[in-house]
C-alpha cells in the first residue's frame, strides 16, 4: 500500500516539475543562441523544432512521461549525454555525502542529547545547548567556508575541494582513505544543522522518557543505570528522532546542493547548479525526479526503521 502511494506521489512530482519548468521563461534555444553569439528568429524556431519545443504543452508532457516510463530521462543539451547516465555518475557522490552526514548527525545528535538529558545542570549541557543553537542558526555555506579556512588552509589537515586526488592511485584501501579524507569537511558541514536538531530533539524526548512510569519500574528492578538509560529509555526516545530524520532527509538533499558548491563535491548538487545556469531542462527535471525518488525511498526506510524500534507501529496482530 505504501509503495503504491509512493508511485502515485512520484508521478505527481513528475507532472508538477515539468509544468513548473515549462512556465519559467527562457529555454535551451535561448542558451544555445547565446553561446553562438546571438541568432535570429528563424534559427531559434529551427532549434525549437529540433528539440520538440514547438509542440503544445500537453503533447510535450505526454512525450516526457512516456519516456520516463522507459527509464529514459532525455538527452542533456548542455553536457551532450543521456541524462540518466549523467545522473547515475553523480548520484553515488551525493548519496555518500548525504548518508554519511545523516549517520554522523544521528549518532552524534543522540549521544549529545542523551548526555545533556542525564546531566541537565552540567556545563556540558550548556555547551550542547549553545552548540545546537549555533549549529541551527549558522548558514551551511558559511560553516563550510569557516571549516575550510580553519582545517584546510590554516591547519592543512584536509584537502580543500573535490572528492579524489587525481595524483593518487592504488588499491581499494588507498582510494578509500583518499575519499574519506575529502569527505570529512563536507560531511561535518552538512550535518552541523542536523546534529543540532537531533540533539535538541533527543534531549527533549529523553527527559520526557526518563520521567515515565516504566523507567521507575526498571529502577525498582535493580537494573544498573546504564541498562535503565540505554536499554529502557533510549529505545523509547528514538521514535521521534527517527521520524524527524525521515522528514529531514529532503532538507539534507537540498542542503547538499550548497555544500557541494562550497567544496566542489562532484555530486548531484553541483550538476543541478550547472544545469540551472545552462537552462538544461532535461537535466534539471531528471535531478528533481531522482531527488524525489531518493526522498521517497528514504521515507519508506524510515517507516521500516520505526517498525523495528517500536512494536506498536504497523498492523501487528
Amino acid at each position: 500500500m505504501r509503495v503504491f502511494y509512493a508511485v502515485v506521489l512520484l508521478a505527481a512530482v513528475l507532472v508538477l516539475n515539468f509544468s513548473l519548468m515549462h512556465l519559467a521563461p527562457g529555454d535551451v534555444a535561448d542558451t544555445i543562441s547565446q553561446s553562438m553569439g546571438g541568432a535570429d528568429q528563424e534559427i531559434l524556431d529551427k532549434i525549437r523544432a529540433d528539440y520538440g519545443l514547438d509542440k503544445p504543452f500537453l503533447v510535450q508532457l505526454g512525450h516526457y512521461i512516456g519516456r520516463v516510463l522507459q527509464f529514459d530521462l532525455g538527452h542533456s543539451f548542455f553536457f551532450n549525454q543521456p541524462v540518466t547516465q549523467l545522473i547515475l555518475q553523480r548520484l553515488p557522490a551525493t548519496l555518500l555525502l548525504v548518508i554519511s552526514a545523516q549517520i554522523l548527525a544521528l549518532v552524534l545528535g543522540v549521544v549529545l542529547g542523551v548526555y545533556s538529558a542525564r546531566k541537565p545542570n552540567s556545563i556540558a549541557n550548556y555547551f550542547v545547548t549553545f552548540f545546537s543553537l549555533f549549529g541551527y542558526s549558522a548558514p551551511v555555506f558559511w560553516t563550510g567556508i569557516l571549516l575550510l579556512i580553519a582545517f584546510s588552509l590554516k591547519i592543512p589537515w584536509f584537502p580543500v575541494a573535490g572528492m579524489r586526488d587525481v595524483t593518487i592511485s592504488g588499491g581499494f584501501w588507498i582510494q578509500f582513505w583518499d575519499v574519506a579524507r575529502h569527505l570529512v569537511l563536507p560531511m561535518i558541514t552538512l550535518s552541523s544543522i542536523f546534529i543540532a536538531l537531533y540533539s535538541r530533539l533527543s534531549r527533549a524526548t529523553m527527559m520526557e522518557t526518563l520521567g515515565a512510569d516504566y523507567i521507575r519500574t526498571a529502577k525498582a528492578k535493580g537494573l544498573s543505570n546504564r541498562q535503565v538509560i540505554y536499554k529502557h529509555a533510549l529505545k523509547n526516545s528514538l521514535s521521534p528522532v527517527i521520524t524527524q530524520a525521515g522528514i529531514q532527509f529532503s532538507a539534507m538533499m537540498s542542503g547538499a546542493v550548497l555544500v557541494e558548491a562550497v567544496f566542489s563535491w562532484p555530486g548531484l548538487g553541483t550538476l543541478a547548479f550547472q544545469s540551472i545556469i545552462a537552462r538544461d531542462t532535461p537535466t534539471i527535471l531528471g535531478i528533481l525526479f531522482f531527488s524525489a525518488l531518493v526522498v521517497i525511498v528514504g521515507n519508506l526506510l524510515t517507516d521500516l526503521a520505526l517498525r523495528l524500534v517500536d512494536p506498536r507501529v504497523g498492523g501487528r496482530k
Partner: peptide
Amino acid sequence: EPMTSLNPVY
C-alpha cells in the same frame, strides 16, 4: 498504573 509501568517496546 499497570498501563504505563511496563516498557512498551520490549
